Amino acid sequence: MLDTSGMPLGPDLPEPGRAVPAFDATTTSGDRITQADLDGPDVVVLFLMESCASCVSLITGLRERPVHEGPLPIAVLVSDGPERDRLVGELEPVARVINQPDGERLAADFGVHGFPAVLLVGAGVIRSASHRLSAVPREVPA
């Protein structure tokens, strides 16, 4: 299976077509996000880890370039370290940020075992998976 960038998917990313798992999370701004929020139009879901240099670079890229014309991305930040507040602050203007103690479990439930992970999710399924933000189409698929 290939991601949209043409790179082979490894066991650390979910296969396209995988159903979105049941979940219930709260963003750093207090909004609730559940599986039902991913049943509609395509949305980008990012899984990021504080200790991952590529994740920090991806956050910078996200701030410089909107992901696509769909809903605001969801960023799951797996972090409780010293850079947590700074990273949340960088993400909040460009994404709905989830930073909960069970972030690693949420990532595993989605089939994410490597970071960063950039998923395009719509109609309740994972449409594509990559480690690169550039793999996400800029326009919402018809």
Results as ranks from 00 to 15, higher is better:
residue 1 M to A: 11
residue 3 D to W: 02
residue 4 T to L: 13
residue 6 G to Q: 09
residue 6 G to Y: 08
residue 7 M to F: 13
residue 11 P to V: 09
residue 11 P to N: 14
residue 13 L to R: 07
residue 19 A to E: 12
residue 19 A to M: 10
residue 20 V to Y: 06
residue 20 V to R: 06
residue 21 P to C: 10
residue 22 A to Y: 09
residue 22 A to R: 12
residue 25 A to N: 06
residue 26 T to N: 08
residue 29 S to K: 14
residue 31 D to C: 12
residue 36 A to F: 06
residue 38 L to R: 05
residue 38 L to S: 10
residue 40 G to R: 10
residue 44 V to Q: 05
residue 44 V to W: 05
residue 45 V to T: 03
residue 46 L to G: 04
residue 46 L to Q: 00
residue 46 L to S: 05
residue 47 F to P: 05
residue 49 M to S: 15
residue 49 M to N: 14
residue 50 E to D: 13
residue 50 E to S: 15
residue 56 V to Q: 14
residue 58 L to F: 09
residue 58 L to K: 08
residue 58 L to Q: 07
residue 61 G to H: 12
residue 63 R to A: 15
residue 64 E to V: 09
residue 64 E to W: 06
residue 64 E to P: 03
residue 64 E to M: 12
residue 65 R to A: 15
residue 65 R to E: 12
residue 68 H to V: 08
residue 69 E to R: 13
residue 71 P to M: 01
residue 72 L to C: 05
residue 72 L to V: 08
residue 73 P to L: 03
residue 74 I to G: 01
residue 75 A to L: 01
residue 77 L to V: 03
residue 79 S to A: 13
residue 80 D to C: 04
residue 84 R to V: 01
residue 89 G to N: 05
residue 90 E to M: 11
residue 90 E to A: 11
residue 91 L to Y: 00
residue 94 V to L: 06
residue 94 V to C: 02
residue 94 V to P: 01
residue 94 V to A: 08
residue 94 V to G: 05
residue 95 A to R: 00
residue 97 V to A: 02
residue 100 Q to V: 15
residue 101 P to S: 11
residue 101 P to R: 14
residue 102 D to W: 14
residue 103 G to H: 05
residue 103 G to M: 07
residue 104 E to L: 15
residue 104 E to A: 15
residue 105 R to Q: 15
residue 106 L to H: 07
residue 108 A to R: 14
residue 108 A to M: 13
residue 109 D to Y: 08
residue 113 H to Q: 11
residue 118 V to K: 03
residue 118 V to N: 03
residue 122 G to M: 02
residue 122 G to Y: 02
residue 123 A to F: 03
residue 123 A to D: 12
residue 126 I to E: 04
residue 126 I to H: 00
residue 126 I to Y: 02
residue 127 R to D: 02
residue 127 R to L: 07
residue 129 A to S: 15
residue 133 L to V: 12
residue 134 S to T: 13
residue 139 E to N: 05
residue 139 E to A: 12
residue 140 V to Q: 10
